[in-house]
Design a protein around this nucleic acid. Structure first.
Lengths: 156, 156
DNA sequence: TCTGGATGTTTCACTTTCTGAAGTAATGTT
DNA sequence: AACATTACTTCAGAAAGTGAAACATCCAGA
């Protein structure tokens, strides 16, 4: 059984990490699609639900998700149709919309998080310490990505 | 400066890891597009070059990249037009094609790896030990994903 | 050897997703 | 008041992903 695509390579650890991150992310997202929760079809819809732990403006969502405003509009439209979020004008800036989870959306968000965590354990087979360490390293990483202004430039 | 989309969350470490992996992978792939190497436009083309450290059959590529055979055909067509790979019949099974890097393709492969590694260091700001540890954890993960038969089932 | 079923790949039409330009409305700046 | 900027939406075209059908080859059993 030849498992890894990289079995006999002396790739730099940076690259191995990158590929590992990609495979992991891809695998869980593929896996998701076969679940009960599949009616939020795509990964961006799921990700938007997850980062809506509190209400956010459309533009903020676009930056966080690293997407174009027009894509955020499309995704929010779907989530609104599904009654997972509602949109209201920002009273402080009437150009902007504020997106808020509905109760149903908050429910789905919890389920998504729980399901992803379960899949993660199944797929990775890491022990609790290792998961903790991985989370630490990747938190440091994403914090730095945000601080570096890349790819979400000028996030405030 | 409010950085992380998860600043005030008590998400499980599994989920944080998953999101971190996704953000990291996404960030570097976005970044890639602005580089000199952008003419291999999409991430799957790049990934295919990377895993072609030795010749592989189309079907093998599909499994490793977790894609449909028809998608692999499309990608290989592009890489062939770019003269990065060549396709020859497998002498042991004349239904199958074997994809091999050209010299030019091997060159590009090295550049892709080097560039991704550089971007990785810039983006993550992890020190050498941390990178090593991250690589270790993610290698364990991807190995397990393959062994678990998911998503690349029955990879042999 | 013949036959039928499985396998490896390609083609093609289809659907979904992404992208970017143009438009609308509100804000802020001078 | 005029003009530039910002926030978001709309829409149409481009790109990517999907799955059924076709084709050639392989393999196992009669």
């Amino acid at each position: 059984m030849k498992n890894s695509p990289f079995e006999d390579l002396d790739l730099p650890p940076e690259f191995i990490s990158l590929v590992g991150a990609t495979i992991l992310s891809h695998a869980i997202q593929k896996n998701y699609e076969t679940s009960e929760l599949a009616h939020c079809t795509n990964k961006h819809q799921k990700m938007m639900l997850v980062i809506l732990q509190h209400p956010r403006r459309m533009g903020e969502l676009a930056k966080l998700l690293n997407m174009l405003p027009s894509s955020v509009t499309a995704i929010a439209d779907v989530l609104e149709d599904l009654r997972f979020v509602s949109r209201e004008r920002d009273p402080n800036d009437r150009r902007a919309w504020i997106v808020t989870l509905t109760d149903e959306g908050a429910d789905m968000r919890q389920k998504l998080i729980a399901e992803a965590s379960m899949r993660f354990r199944e797929l990775t087979n890491l022990n609790a310490d290792e998961i903790q360490e991985l989370a630490r390293l990747l938190t440091k990483t994403t914090d730095n990505i945000s601080v570096a202004g890349f790819p979400n430039e000028a996030l405030e």
